[in-house]
Design a protein around this nucleic acid. Structure first.
Length: 111
DNA sequence: AACCTGACTCGCC
DNA sequence: AGGCGAGCCAGGT
């Protein structure tokens, strides 16, 4: 169970209709400082469609400009379809839809 | 094998 | 208040 695996597990745990920040995913995966690694992990997303990377946004709710799996507009589309409201074209209402907490992923992949 | 870079975040000027 | 550097991991050069 390496860091990447845990990051992916954490992202998969984000419930539909909610979003999580890179920091939250990072904490669930082992440490807040992994936030940057989280970005890299999703960048090289090995399982598009399986890992809901569209539910991961920056701390201020902004979606990544470098989003690349169908276009940034696609991400907004998916999130709104799940019930996540947007404040503007690039920011989700993070305060209302951020997942309250994410379980800590253990070495063996469990909580 | 060392070095650089990247979907981030936070703390310190 | 806004800019800068550090810490983390993996993969490419």
């Amino acid at each position: 169970m390496n860091t990447f695996q845990r990051i992916y597990e954490a992202v998969k745990l984000i419930p539909e209709g909610q979003v999580a920040t890179y920091g939250q995913v990072a904490e669930a995966a082992g440490g807040r400082r992994l936030s940057r690694v989280v970005g890299y992990a999703l960048h090289v997303n090995p399982e598009p469609g399986v890992i809901p990377c569209h539910r991961v946004v920056m701390r201020d709710g902004a979606v990544s400009p470098a989003f690349a799996f169908g276009g940034a507009g696609r991400q907004k589309e998916l999130l709104e379809a799940e019930g996540v409201a947007f404040l503007d074209d690039s920011h989700v209402d993070i305060q209302r839809f951020r997942v309250p907490f994410l379980p800590l992923i253990q070495e063996d992949g469990t909580f």
